[in-house]
Design a protein around this nucleic acid. Structure first.
Lengths: 245, 245
DNA sequence: TTTGTGGACGAACACTGTTCTATATCTGAA
DNA sequence: TTCAGATATAGAACAGTGTTCGTCCACAAA
């Protein structure tokens, strides 16, 4: 590590090295010094980081280090870490394709959009925390809200119910993904409970106070996260229709 | 303050000295040296802190400072901050009263339990974040799960649906409370958007890409959080019944 | 050539959770 | 009563975090 000549005299060693490196090394790329930091590069690096190590590893310092710079350099392109989070979930939402509304298949279509969003979330573990905490007023998240709203309206749901239901569905997708990302991460805490272990723990409960939890431990732990996801949304959509007529 | 010292009969010399030292050093608090740190006092202080300044102000250091000690003193009674969070939501869940299941009123009863839990959450702004992030396996949270499960089963819902639905309801209550606590906190960011402002912003959207959001801006922002809460849960419960018959 | 200007960036500030270590206190047995 | 031993209490410190300040340099315009 010969990086200690920071406050040298006139031209520091790093600068000198950078000049030389600029001469022989990456001269071809129109710029002399380094690849410039852009919002796109920041977002890309952030995605790689979250995909590899989870959302809690997404740190301004980690992103800056991956870009071979200091943390303060990011603040010229991103106002906050909250804004970086919003950019991430915005880009995720942008990848969801909205179907053209079909009155006969509105329930499947809503479920499809929600599933797409969930899959995007689960690709980057823990990122749904940003979706829960952040402003839901990004233009890309509003696009999904508009899409859900349109599908529901086309399906014959009343405007008030459609408005509230699209919000509820969006919220549920975020919350479910967040919980799922927690479960799928044993967090090296020793609390990594698989399904068999969970059943055992439920059955260890005192039957006097938890009779039904003990009796239906199998049902409580049955199915994977996808089944629960589909179940809840289908129940929600089924309950939506009778209110309109 | 009544002088209710524990070992009344024999007051040793150092105890006497400690009392005198306590007199001039800090305040004369009815006890010999200081009130001992217990889990109860930690939890109480934490609740006061969250109630006054929100969950993000709940810090080991803040709790320790409120108890006039250092942060490391808490770790003798609480393993983690996560465990402190669990204790908080546990105590909150313990305050919810579960009704005796009535087959004729099972939907109201589920709604009542969820409303109670939401009210407890909203009393301490932001605390639902701990409910989302923490282990759902606390004994007090399981008690609510058991209660919801029992009500649903009594109402005639199939075991599998009842199991998944109780989980979904619990998750929704936490997520909704979390979002509500975010909205009700302007965060001094200038982004404090009231309803009129929100309608204006929705109507500013380009109609070409957000036709329904613009058209139904009033419905999207109509009602307060309680209305949306009741709506979503009622829809969920309504959709639950046809699946059993 | 001189002068801005805006991005890059090191250092630092005010925090966070947590652990190490030493001290002080209380309990329980001789 | 006396003397361990256990245990609670703290101070200091470690490794992080987001964010800001002031500087500094490369490049574009005058």
């Amino acid at each position: 590590m010969a990086d200690r000549s920071a406050s040298r005299g006139t031209v520091s060693r790093d600068q000198w090295a950078a000049q030389i490196a600029a001469l022989d090394g990456t001269r071809a790329t129109s710029r002399s010094r380094k690849a410039p930091i852009t919002v796109g590069r920041i977002v890309d690096t952030a995605f790689q980081l979250v995909e590899a190590e989870g959302f809690e590893a997404l740190t301004m310092r980690r992103v800056a280090a991956a870009l071979q710079t200091g943390p303060s350099s990011l603040y010229a392109h991103v106002r906050n870490k909250a804004e970086l989070d919003d950019l991430l979930i915005g880009e995720l939402c942008a990848k969801v394709t909205l179907p053209t509304p079909d009155p006969a298949r509105w329930q499947e279509q809503v479920l499809d959009v929600c599933r797409q969003l969930r899959d995007q979330y689960l690709r980057y573990p823990g990122i749904s925390r940003a979706a829960l905490a952040g402003t839901p007023n990004s233009l890309d998240t509003l696009r999904i809200g508009e899409g859900l709203l349109t599908i529901l309206l086309t399906g014959g749901v009343s405007p008030q119910s459609a408005a509230w239901a699209s919000d509820a569905a969006f919220l549920y997708v975020s919350a479910h993904s967040f919980e799922a990302s927690l479960r799928q991460r044993p967090e090296e805490d020793g609390d990594g409970v698989d399904r068999a272990e969970l059943i055992e723990r439920f059955k260890m409960l005192p039957e006097s106070r938890f009779p039904n939890t003990v009796a239906y431990a199998r049902e409580l732990t049955h199915g994977d996260e996808h089944d629960r996801f589909d179940f809840t949304l289908e129940v929600l959509l089924r309950g939506l229709l009778p209110a309109t007529s």
